[in-house]
């Protein structure tokens, strides 16, 4: 193996940083967008088909571009935001651009699962639209949201590995520069195992968390 254990550990940390920071930003942007999609849908709480359609199309556009294209296509924007297009910080920008619309969609689908009867009860109690979302819809959807966020964060782990291709750092970077370009099979194997462990861990954590919420 051409790389030291320290190097592996530091790239694991880089990956975790990229994934967690981009995940947080994606939620901050994606959650409100998802809620907006949900409430503006025809027949829903706010019923604003025009806003819904515009948002719907924009999100679809972002969602149809493959991550590897986003990565290079938005380099000028990345440079504008973080000042550079190489390194861990630079990878976070395209990761958020990739994941936020994805999360918006996942949030929308989670919220749509909430039973219409609950909305009817909220309406009968005279809840305001904000109260309906905060007190009724979000708590009822929480368990499903956690499952969907798990899917999103695993998507980000995959994206972070790809970001390695353009010098984003992290485990993916290691796999490409050593495993692929220098034919170091052991490093390749180690990085793949690390990624498997990460994905398995996140999925199990998400499942347990979702289950706990459902029961509580």
């Amino acid at each position: 193996m051409l790389v030291s254990t320290d190097r592996i550990i530091s790239s694991v940390i880089e990956t975790l940083q990229m994934v967690s920071i981009s995940f947080i930003f994606s939620i901050v942007i994606g959650l409100p967008l998802g809620i907006l999609l949900y409430v503006t849908r025809r027949g829903q709480i706010l019923d604003q088909p025009i806003i819904f359609n515009v948002l719907n199309i924009i999100i679809n556009i972002f969602r149809s571009v493959p991550f590897i294209i986003i990565l290079v296509a938005i380099i000028p924007f990345t440079r504008f935001v973080v000042g550079t297009s190489i390194g861990t910080e630079a990878a976070i920008v395209p990761m958020v651009v990739y994941a936020a619309p994805y999360i918006a969609r996942l949030v929308e689908s989670s919220l749509l699962e909430v039973d219409d009867g609950v909305l009817e009860a909220a309406n009968a109690m005279g809840a305001t639209p904000l109260q309906t979302i905060v007190r009724f819809v979000l708590p009822e959807a929480l368990s499903s949201l956690v499952i969907n966020f798990t899917i999103a964060i695993i998507g980000l782990v995959g994206a972070s590995a790809m970001a390695g291709a353009v010098g984003g750092g992290g485990v993916g970077d290691l796999a490409i520069t050593y495993g692929y370009q220098r034919f170091d099979g052991v490093t390749m194997l180690v990085t793949v195992v690390i990624l498997i462990v990460m994905v398995q861990g996140l999925q199990s954590f998400g499942n347990v968390l979702s289950k706990t919420i459902r029961r509580k």
Partner: peptide
């Protein structure tokens, strides 16, 4: 109308409780 609704309670066939 929201104020009027406070004077009106409603129960449903499928209860419509919050499971969470």
């Amino acid at each position: 109308i929201r104020t009027i609704k406070r004077d009106i309670g409603m129960i449903f066939q499928h209860f419509n409780l919050l499971d969470s």
